[in-house]
């Protein structure tokens, strides 16, 4: 799925940033350098950023401004990184905490 806006009616072309590759649960994914990880995932239709620790429910970004902490993922081995506030870098490894079967 591609949810990128591309050319915006008012703002014009929105796809800035160099095209880079990140690895989400090991799967390579194209992203725009500098955009938040959460946005890059959403652009590909990946809405689940973590599974809740007790109930194991899927959760996704809710506030996009770093408050709700629902988008916290493991980034390059560091747990609890708020992906709506963390910019994509080439080669970044992003893992979904609590993914069932792990």
């Amino acid at each position: 799925m591609d949810l990128r806006v591309g050319r915006h009616a008012v703002l014009g072309e929105m796809e800035g940033g160099k095209l880079v590759t990140i690895y989400v649960d090991g799967v390579p994914l194209k992203a725009r350098e500098g955009e938040p990880i959460a946005a890059a995932l959403y652009a590909h239709g990946i809405r689940t950023t973590r599974y809740s620790p007790r109930l194991g429910e899927p959760r996704g970004p809710f506030c996009m401004i770093g408050r709700c902490t629902e988008c916290a993922m493991t980034v390059d081995g560091e747990p609890n990184v708020r992906t709506c506030m963390t910019a994509v870098r080439d080669g970044m490894r992003v893992d979904t905490p609590g993914r069932p079967g792990e």
Partner: peptide, 8 residues
């Protein structure tokens, strides 16, 4: 009392 401290 969690990570978001109720801000949400």
């Amino acid at each position: 009392l969690g990570y978001c401290q109720g801000r949400f």
